[in-house]
């Protein structure tokens, strides 16, 4: 079973690498932030898979996933409530 989990972790990481392109060039600030949020939710999945890779599974990594899940909301809400303002020029360019 560990082979499958390692392969899936690699697949999700490749997903993240593709999303990195979006974060790097996605035109508006919100697009970049969405890519960062995708990193958060996919990162939790990768951490869970990594915890189960290896012959003795390394369970404490699950706790790292838990912390990541707990704090994922803070960044996104901080972006929405505090950072994202005066985006008029960007959105005119998009739509």
């Amino acid at each position: 079973m560990t082979g499958l989990e390692g392969a899936l972790a690699l697949f999700l990481l490749a997903n993240l690498a593709v999303a990195l392109v979006r974060a790097a060039r996605g035109p508006t600030a919100a697009d970049r932030m969405l890519a960062a949020l995708l990193f958060g939710s996919t990162g939790v999945g990768v951490l869970l898979l990594l915890a189960h890779v290896g012959t003795p599974p390394h369970m404490p990594i699950v706790d790292a996933a838990l912390v990541l899940a707990l704090l994922a909301a803070i960044t996104g809400v901080a972006f929405a409530l505090r950072a994202w303002s005066a985006e008029g020029e960007d959105d005119g360019g998009r739509s």
Binding site: M33, A36, L47, L68
Partner: peptide, 17 residues
């Protein structure tokens, strides 16, 4: 800032690895 957040997440994955 967004890339810094992404870097932090990847760093957490690296430490787990």
């Amino acid at each position: 800032v967004v890339m810094f957040i992404v870097f932090g997440l990847l760093m957490a994955l690296a430490w787990a690895r």
